[in-house]
């Protein structure tokens, strides 16, 4: 299951993670975000052990959304070894998302 990440836990859960982390910036009122949620759960299942999915609620975590200049949601960021590797914007199918993230 995707983990919920906050400003306080971001460093530990994302930047210091030993496996790559997909961070999903979302909000409850954003329909495309809600439709992306099952897609991300499938990605995590398909790539079990190779990647973790984390979710950042932009309403609650304005600081993180600001810091990563999130201007459209859903936005998905891939972090590897503490570094931002790729950014993908918008709702898409599982295969397309995996390809765009370079996984």
């Amino acid at each position: 299951m995707p983990i919920k990440v906050t400003t306080e836990t971001f460093k530990k859960d994302v930047l210091e993670s030993e496996v790559p982390v997909i961070v999903d910036f979302w909000a409850q009122w954003c329909r495309p975000c809600l439709m992306l949620a099952p897609v991300l759960e499938e990605v995590e299942k398909d790539l079990a052990g190779k990647v973790i999915v984390a979710k950042v609620n932009v309403d609650e975590e304005g600081y993180l959304a600001n810091q990563y200049r999130i201007s459209s949601i859903p936005t998905v960021l891939l972090f590897e070894n503490g570094q931002l590797k790729t950014q993908v914007i918008g709702l898409m199918r599982k295969e397309d998302l995996i390809k765009r993230l370079g996984l």
Binding site: W29, R31, P32, C33, V58, A65, S71, I73, G90
Partner: peptide
């Protein structure tokens, strides 16, 4: 600027 300040959906991105 697509996805970098250009949006096609007010209900999706307005809140930001």
């Amino acid at each position: 600027f697509i996805g970098k300040g250009i949006s096609y959906c007010a209900i999706c991105d307005g809140f930001i």
